[in-house]
Amino acid sequence: MNAAAATPLDLSTLLPGFSEPARQSQSCFRLIMDATALPGSISDFADLCLTPPQGIDKAAAACLLTLADADTNLWLDPALRNSESENWLRFHTGAPITTEANTATFALISSIESAPNFGEFNQGDAKYPDRSTTILVMVSSLSGGTHLTLRGPGINDEIVIAPRGLSEKFWRERDELVAHFQFGIDLILSAGSQLVSIPRTTRITY
């Protein structure tokens, strides 16, 4: 499970993480919590002082620094494996990197084309649906794409989002998984310093 972690870290080129972990992870968490409580609303980490390595969005990096640790398996898509990003995440979070999608607490996806079917990730247990994988998908932009109308808990009537680079097939695949509520995956889409959260309860029309 932890084969990736066998390579030693090259610390000479490692970029710093949070400069004030307690304060910064608190303010980041509030942005993530607001996004999760209000699906479809955009949280912006522009004020956060953090330079993640190339390959990870600032918002996705902030999420993982805030939430991931030695207790959470992290799955990285093939494009991120053995990269500077992987070293950075391993060093700053201490999260075990896994290549088995169904054991992942968090998954970070940089290119949706090379990602596995979402059904391969942990969908949770009937009695413990909270054990499912939270999937962070990095997209090019949270605006300018196809319009999606979201409804459900956390949304006052409805809200429209337009993330770029996600096909209708992607959303149909997600629909099929969350149709088996309480099973399902919780999605976080990030682009640059912004993110939007789409938990499994959100109903999407496109």
């Binding site: 999760t36 939430l67 959470t72 909270d130 938990p199 499994r200 309860t201």
Partner: peptide, 11 residues
């Protein structure tokens, strides 16, 4: 915090 996010995702 992780528990809060899952709690909000599964109301």
């Amino acid at each position: 915090r992780r528990a809060i996010l899952k709690a909000l995702s599964i109301p």
